[in-house]
Simulated scan of single mutants.
Amino acid sequence: MARTEERHLLVRLGGALLGVLALPGWTLAAPDRPIALVLPVGALYTVACLVAIPSVMERRPALRLPVCAGLLAAGWVILVWLGPQNPWVLLYALVVIAAMLPLFWVLALTGVTMLGLLVWGAATGDAFARVPDLIMIASVTAVVGLLASLVETNAELRRAREQVAELATARERERVARDLHDILGHSLTTVAVKAGLARRVLDKGGDPEMASTQIGEVEELARRALDDVRATIDDYREVRLSVELSNAAEALRSVGVDADLPRAVDDLDPALRSAFGYVLRETVTNVVRHAHADRVRVRLGRDHIEITDDGDGHPEGRFGNGLSGLSERMRAVDGRLSTGPGLLDGDREGFTVYAYGGRAGGSR
């Protein structure tokens, strides 16, 4: 709702500015007409076109069409009154039509308007003199229509992203619920059974040693379940390489860097995916912040990752403490991290980050 109101405000402000700038044109439109009458007519027509967009934009097309047709008819009335030398008057209504109606109606109403102006020009003998005006009117209408289409496309993309985020959140909730059920379901059921057995033994005055054994097993089961929950939470917090590849693509695209990224991580050793995810995240972050690169290439093997950019090489402090942190993560998986110059089919000396795990990379 806030975005809609902001768009309406911008439309009002932009239209008001254009209306003010067009007032001198109205004063010169028809020298034989009284200015005291031409100016109020022009102002009222401008306000009507200005108010129509935010007032009707959010309503169904069935209501938009008669409003646009009414504005176009009013424009024709004013044009007939001012004279055929002022076809730009119809541009007000055509801009509203291009902003509010589907493409079919935009083409239909614009085409009928152009045809009407040509017929009128032929009847008055100045059809060729009106051609530049017609080209201007058609061009401006087309530009407004394209801008309106882009705005609507961006809105649809924004809605699609929001839906994707909601679906991703729902899937993640389902996954968490499923994992917790799998982890705790059996353990808590067994805990409940053994605790109930121990209670019944004690209630009946049975063997305290048996009850103590059952309570001990309950304690052990609860401890195991707690360890499983902690392990699961740690796994949720773990950086995932597949997610980092998606984030890297979005981050690089947002700053205009061409990204050559692998499409899958299936061939990579699962034990290295988290560490390589940290390497990718830190490297891409530094490319975005400091490298001034145009291209980035990421190559994955079963036990190594190589990230090369064509940026400013290896300036001092580009990684800072991040490089030592990555080195520690790679040592934790029996790997190493190395950096150096790299080229991406160009003359600029870029920068390469190479990480490998286990015994890989010995030949590099």
Rank of each mutant, 00 (worst) to 15 (best):
L180W: 01
I183A: 09
R178I: 00
R161F: 05
A165E: 11
A160T: 04
E156R: 15
R158G: 13
T141P: 02
R158S: 14
A165M: 05
R173A: 04
N154G: 12
R178E: 06
D182P: 01
V176G: 01
A177C: 03
I183Y: 08
Q163E: 13
V176A: 04
V144K: 10
R161I: 01
A165C: 02
E166Y: 05
N154Q: 15
R178Y: 05
A177S: 08
I183C: 01
A170Y: 05
E174G: 06
L150G: 07
R171F: 03
V151S: 12
R171E: 09
R159N: 04
R171N: 06
E166P: 01
V151A: 13
N154E: 15
D179G: 12
L146H: 15
R159L: 08
L167Q: 09
L146I: 11
L167S: 05
T169P: 00
E152S: 08
A148F: 04
L157F: 12
L146Y: 15
T141F: 00
V164F: 10
E174S: 09
V164H: 11
R159W: 08
E172N: 12
H181I: 00
A168T: 08
L146V: 13
V143A: 15
G145T: 10
D179C: 09
T141K: 00
E174A: 10
E172R: 14
T141Y: 00
S149H: 13
D182K: 09
R161D: 09
L150Q: 13
I183Q: 08
V143R: 15
E156I: 12
V151L: 11
E172S: 12
E172A: 11
G145S: 14
R175F: 04
T153R: 15
E162M: 10
A160K: 09
V151Y: 13
T169R: 10
R175G: 01
E152A: 11
G145N: 13
A142W: 05
R178V: 00
V143I: 15
L147A: 14
E152G: 02
L150F: 14
R173H: 03
A165D: 12
N154S: 14
R171H: 08
V151F: 11
T141V: 00
V164Q: 13
D182G: 13
E152P: 00
T153Q: 13
E166G: 06
R158I: 09
L146W: 15
L180E: 08
A142C: 07
E166H: 10
L147P: 06
A165P: 02
V176M: 04
E166D: 09
N154I: 11
A165H: 09
E174R: 07
A165F: 03
E166C: 02
E152C: 03
A170K: 08
L180M: 03
L150E: 11
A165L: 06
L147D: 13
R173Y: 01
R175N: 07
A168R: 12
T141Q: 02
R171T: 05
S149Q: 12
R158C: 09
I183K: 10
A155Q: 06
A177E: 06
R161H: 08
I183V: 03
E156P: 02
V176R: 06
V144R: 10
L180Y: 03
A177R: 05
V164N: 08
